[in-house]
Amino acid sequence: MANFSIADLKALREALGTGMVDTKKALEEAGGDVEKATEILRLKGAKGNAKRADRSTSEGLVATTEKDGVTYLLELACETDFVAKNERFGKLADDVLAAVAAAGADSVESALAAPAGDKTVADLISDEAAIIGEKVELRRVGALKGDAFEVYLHRTNKDLPPQLGVVVAYTGSDAETARSIAQHISFANPSVLTREDVPADAVEKEREIVTEISRSEGKPEAALPKIIEGRLTSYFKQVALLEQDYAKDNKINVAKVLEDAGLTVTGFLRFKVGA
């Protein structure tokens, strides 16, 4: 009989985020030696990483840090909420975030190539995925420069780490309103700052759609231009932050809130796990 207790099994499983059966087998194979069992799980996991490549990663966390006037936001994804809330997964996110900030990485590609000790971030994630026994992927990385920042991290479940993160870069001194804008972004999910930031092809596609809808409704041809522009305005209110109705008072838009507070938003990031 292997020389380990139920407490040893539970502690190792919680430390690594591995499954009960795999952890038990590793401890049995290692004769109760925790370090050896960890190595066994890592080696077995490494062989399984390729097999897990097509699995879905709908859980995970968002994390953020600031360095030298730049705030970084990332999404680290995994398969289950058990792993998402595990301390080992949280430490991996912290290590990846530190490497991303040190390298000034602003994309997944540059982040994966960033040094992390004596290996790269890609190697670090792969090694940890092998131990954890789940697919783990760095899904998104963003970097935002600015004079001042407001960060809002939201937990969709109190037992899980933050799964929705917003970073707002701004000028001005009203931090309270800046935070309120970050919360608004978390709820309203704008994709751009201003209507001018919407890609021209996206605007043209929307114009075609609302034109077809308006004609199918039998609207008079002479009235179409005004109707189409009105519907395009509604579209911009959905996707452009400054055009949106303010979440805390839909009688005014975000642009007016910022103007009254003496703030200028220069950029924002919004990541939601799995979205």
Results as ranks from 00 to 15, higher is better:
I181H: 00
S191L: 15
L263F: 12
V168R: 11
L242H: 01
D245W: 01
E208W: 06
D249T: 08
F271A: 06
E208S: 11
V210K: 09
A178I: 02
V239W: 00
S173C: 07
F236W: 02
L258Q: 12
A255K: 05
A200G: 12
R231E: 08
V254L: 12
T156M: 12
S191K: 14
A200Y: 07
K158L: 11
N189T: 08
F236T: 05
N189Q: 09
R215H: 06
K237R: 15
N250M: 10
T266K: 06
T171K: 08
I228G: 14
V166S: 13
F271H: 12
D260A: 15
V265I: 07
V168T: 09
D260L: 08
V239C: 01
K256T: 14
V166P: 13
Q183S: 13
Q244S: 04
G165Y: 03
R195K: 11
I227S: 09
A178D: 09
R215P: 08
A202R: 06
S180K: 15
L232I: 04
N157P: 00
K248Q: 13
N253P: 11
F268W: 07
T156G: 14
S173D: 15
V167F: 08
G218T: 05
S214R: 06
Y246I: 02
V210E: 11
E176T: 10
N157K: 10
A200W: 07
P162G: 09
G172M: 11
R155A: 12
R270F: 03
I185S: 07
D197T: 00
G262T: 06
G230M: 04
I181G: 00
G267Y: 09
V167N: 06
P225R: 04
E212G: 11
G274A: 10
V167C: 04
F271N: 05
K226P: 00
K205S: 10
R215M: 10
R155K: 15
E208N: 14
I181N: 00
F187N: 05
D174N: 12
Y170V: 13
H154I: 07
N253S: 12
G267K: 07
E243N: 10
T211P: 03
T194A: 03
S216F: 09
V168A: 11
A240K: 00
T156H: 13
K226F: 01
S191E: 15
E229M: 02
Q163C: 06
K248P: 01
D174R: 03
G172K: 12
D245V: 02
A240R: 00
K158N: 14
A202Y: 03
S234Q: 14
K272V: 15
R179G: 15
T171N: 02
P190C: 04
V273L: 13
I185D: 08
A261V: 04
V192C: 02
G230L: 05
G262V: 06
V257A: 06
I181S: 01
N189D: 05
E259T: 11
I209A: 13
G218R: 09
I213V: 09
V254R: 08
F187D: 05
S214V: 14
V273C: 10
G262S: 06
T156K: 13
